[in-house]
């Protein structure tokens, strides 16, 4: 099973600048493992050493966030597209430059 994986700009340098790559696997986890094997620079960027999804990354199968499916066990087929995007978050909490209230 070979699926297309769409990489975010921040990870493309690890894949020779490619925006889209292909990788084999029957689940999202297998695809990401194959990807890290093909492009070692991606290792540890999406999946943690303990085999869970990195908290600062979102992974989708087509339009759906895999955290709301079966995470890395989510099945994929040839026609699926896996997208990886950074989780975008932050905020003013703990700001050392906050004015006293």
């Amino acid at each position: 099973m070979s699926v297309t994986v769409h990489l975010p700009t921040v990870l493309r340098s690890h894949a020779g600048g490619a925006k889209d790559v292909t990788a084999d696997g029957a689940t999202v986890g297998e695809v990401l493992t194959a990807l890290a094997s093909e492009y070692p620079g991606l290792s540890g960027q999406v999946v943690n050493a303990d085999g869970t999804l990195h908290k600062f990354v979102n992974v989708y199968v087509n339009d759906d966030d895999v955290r709301y499916m079966s995470a890395l066990d989510t099945p994929v087929t040839d026609s699926d597209e896996v997208s990886i995007l950074p989780a975008v978050a932050g905020g003013a909490v703990d700001s050392s430059r906050s004015l006293p209230t």
Binding site: P86, G90, S98
Partner: peptide
């Protein structure tokens, strides 16, 4: 890029913003 508001603080990245900045470009 990304934009967000600080409702009661100045327009300067907080430590949270910095540690969670996803992309140096």
């Amino acid at each position: 890029g990304v934009f967000h508001s600080h409702t009661h603080t100045e327009a300067y990245p907080s430590p949270t913003d910095v540690t969670q900045a996803p992309d140096p470009t």
